[in-house]
Design a protein around this nucleic acid. Structure first.
Length: 643
RNA sequence: CGCGGGGUAGAGCAGUUGGUAGCUCGUCGGGCUCAUAACCCGGAGGUCGGAGGUUCAAGUCCUCCUCCCGCAACCA
């Protein structure tokens, strides 16, 4: 029994689609830290899960004609399958649809209400009836719905609010004066953008959809995402429920790891909730960037979503884990491309580590028949190798504690390089030719085995599948412990090795990239098909007739200064001139357009965009990130109706 | 003047409190042959975005300019 505990969490993921490499990023990092801490003897709680409520899930389920619960059940299975595939050692998996979580959330909501931090108010927002959505003043575009551009009405909806503003000062201090936020550079951004302008009370309930946790004392309302999702970190420990009872043991969390898009909620709302509940705050919020693919943010429509299953099957889960963590710098985005990944796997894992093990074991096999003789002879170079080997554990410890996994790995690989160098320095193949140098040879190979033992022990948290294979090969099964990772002469003098398969086979870069690109192409095709399948509902001719399409000529065109994407077009619609703003500045220059004839939607309600009043829109075809305006040939009379 | 981050060798990045500019990959040359055509050593390659300023000394501090990227706003 030890009193060292460690609690680490991933966010709970939103299962509105299948998991991708981005989900892996956070989860693999947490898993490695969790494993490392377990190795160090901590009693670890590693939590992950899924956030399963909300309007979007409700809609998706409806589209598929199943219940929301059925819908999330399916996707949760895929998540769990992926975690199993990636060898994720979570201790607990929370689903916000679990009974105990619901119980906790309801109690928290009530408690905050009783304390006066939640009050019933009116969401006197702007409401767009067709979209069934509320918008804040700042979201409105010229007072109109940002989604459809129609008039919004002043509507009032009953809602509950959380007095988050009560905690402004404490939050600012938390962010700027403590090391809660990692990296801390983000604190400025948060404080300037959200705290300084004044925190608005947060709307924490909804009546517009039903798929959520009901407010016990007012069942028209369901608890909105903030309180529902964030509470998972304590409900999973049994806070205010009977299912678990290790809240006292594990709370406060040591690390919440999140991607930067949800930093805000974890940096502001979650601490505020805990303050309101009078609970201790988590120790650290580690924020990492996104994985970008060839410099672009990953997205399905760009067809660059990396499927972790495909990659894992080709290169092994550990190789993917390694690459993700090696590239991951706290806070920064890391670019992902098949080429970078393959090169990394080749140079670090195949050429560096894999080859080191291979050549060492092969030599023990070749010169000693697999079992080292026991006589020894020290030599130069030994000390330097041993010093390096014994120093890395402490450094890795520090990096892991600071959630700098890329640096932790770099530290370990310093020893890989040092050991490879040691082989060159000591030239064991020369020693092997001289029977009188057997003792020296045994020492050299032993030192290599010891180095590999330390390397593989420390790496076992990061690559849990492959490292045991190394233990096996170097005969270290009983000795590869954390305690031994800064000790020397641990393996028996007459240790026995056993050759095995190549740990990380070298990858043929060109061939693989070609094949991976083929996968991506296929994925793109599927997306296309999906989009076609998801076509709109049928309409009658009378609906179409409501749209007034006319041929118009572009008289003038200029960029709208305040905007990146908008061009301001002056059109002749046959009756007179009108101005239209169009988001095509990335695809066309004014010169491309002036004098051309295009199709105008003439009866669209006006809207103001970046200060320009737009009367209508012009038709363009869009595909992926390509946009082409529909031009009409010059003979067509300006102003003629299209039907 | 909305907020923030960044421009350092071909690419990707480190550079703490100002004091000889480093790492990984790539490239070129050499060494070695135990090993997964792997390993080891060395070279080339940077006026550290630009211009001023502070200083004995600036990638590192100050000012201005410029470009890029996020957020926000916006793709009628």
């Amino acid at each position: 029994m030890c009193d060292k505990k460690f609690y680490i969490t991933t966010p709970i993921y939103y299962p509105s689609g299948n998991p991708h490499i981005g989900h892996c990023y956070t989860t693999v990092a947490c898993d490695s830290i969790a494993r490392y801490k377990r190795m160090q003897g901590y009693d670890v709680m590693f939590l992950t899960g899924t956030d399963e409520h909300g309007q979007k899930i409700e809609q998706k389920a409806m589209e598929k004609g199943i219940t929301p619960k059925q819908y999330v059940d399916e996707i949760v299975e895929v998540f769990k399958e992926l975690w199993s595939f990636m060898n994720i050692s979570y201790d607990r998996y929370i689903r916000t649809t679990d009974d105990y979580h619901i119980e906790t959330v309801q109690k928290i909501f009530k408690a905050l209400y009783d304390k006066g931090y939640i009050y019933k108010g009116e969401y006197s927002g702007k409401y767009c009836t067709p979209c069934e959505s509320f918008w804040t003043q700042s979201q409105l575009v010229d007072g109109k719905c940002p989604d459809c551009g129609r008039e919004v009405i002043e509507a009032k909806e009953e809602a509950y609010f959380f007095r988050i503003s009560d905690f402004s000062e404490r939050l600012e201090k938390l962010l700027t004066e403590t090391d809660y936020l990692r990296p801390k550079t983000r604190a400025v951004e948060l404080v300037n953008n959200f705290i300084k302008p004044g925190l608005e009370d947060l709307c924490v309930s909804r009546t517009s959809f039903k798929w959520g946790i009901p407010v016990t004392f007012d069942t028209n309302h369901v608890v909105y995402v903030w309180i529902d999702a964030l509470s998972n970190y304590i409900s999973a420990l049994g806070y205010e429920n009977e299912t678990y009872n290790d809240y006292n043991k594990f709370w406060p969390a040591d690390v919440h790891m999140v991607a930067k898009d949800i930093m805000r909620f974890h940096a502001i709302i979650w601490p505020a909730m805990l303050m309101a509940l009078d609970l201790p705050l988590p120790k650290h919020l580690a924020v990492h960037g996104w994985i970008t693919f060839n410099g672009q943010k990953m997205s399905k429509s760009l067809g660059n979503v990396v499927d972790p299953f495909i990659l894992g099957k080709r290169y092994g889960a550990d190789a993917i884990r390694y690459h993700i963590m090696r590239e991951m710098a706290l806070g920064a985005d890391s670019s992902f491309s098949n080429e970078i990944m393959i090169n990394r796997i080749n140079s670090d894992l195949a050429n560096g580590l894999g080859n080191l093990v291979s050549r060492t074991v092969a030599m023990v096999d070749k010169y000693f028949g697999g079992t080292l003789s026991t006589e020894r002879k020290e030599g130069e170079f030994d000390k330097d190798l041993i010093d390096t080997a014994l120093s890395i554990k402490a450094n890795v410890d520090n990096f892991v504690d600071e959630t700098q996994l890329n640096n932790a790995l770099a530290e370990i690989f310093k020893l890989v390089q040092r050991a490879n160098k040691y082989i060159d320095e000591t030239t064991p193949w020369v020693l092997g030719k001289d029977e009188s140098k057997k003792a020296r040879l045994a020492t050299v190979l032993y030192n290599l085995l010891e180095s590999i033992r330390i390397i593989s022990t420390l790496l076992s948290a990061f690559m849990p599948t492959t490292m045991p294979k190394i233990f096996e090969q170097i005969g270290a099964n009983d000795f590869a412990t954390y305690e031994n990772a800064d000790k020397w002469n641990v393996l028996p003098l007459d240790t026995t090795v056993s050759r095995g398969e190549a740990l990380f086979p070298r990858i043929d870069v060109d061939k693989e990239i070609e094949e991976l690109n083929a996968f991506i192409k296929n994925a793109e095709t599927e997306v296309e098909e999906d989009e076609e399948d998801a076509g709109l509902a049928l309409i009658g001719i009378e609906d179409f007739a409501k749209v007034e399409l006319r041929v118009a000529k572009i008289l003038e065109c200029e960029k709208i200064k305040k905007s990146k994407k908008l061009l301001k077009l002056t059109l002749d619609d046959g009756k007179g001139q009108r101005t239209v703003a169009s988001g095509i500045a990335n695809y066309y220059t004014p010169d491309d357009l002036i004098g051309k004839k295009i199709v105008l939607v003439a009866n669209l309600k006006p809207a103001k965009l970046c200060g320009v009043e737009s009367n209508g829109m012009i038709l363009a075809a869009s595909y992926k990130d390509e946009v082409r305006v529909i031009f009409v040939d010059d003979e067509t009379k300006t102003g003629s109706r299209i039907s």
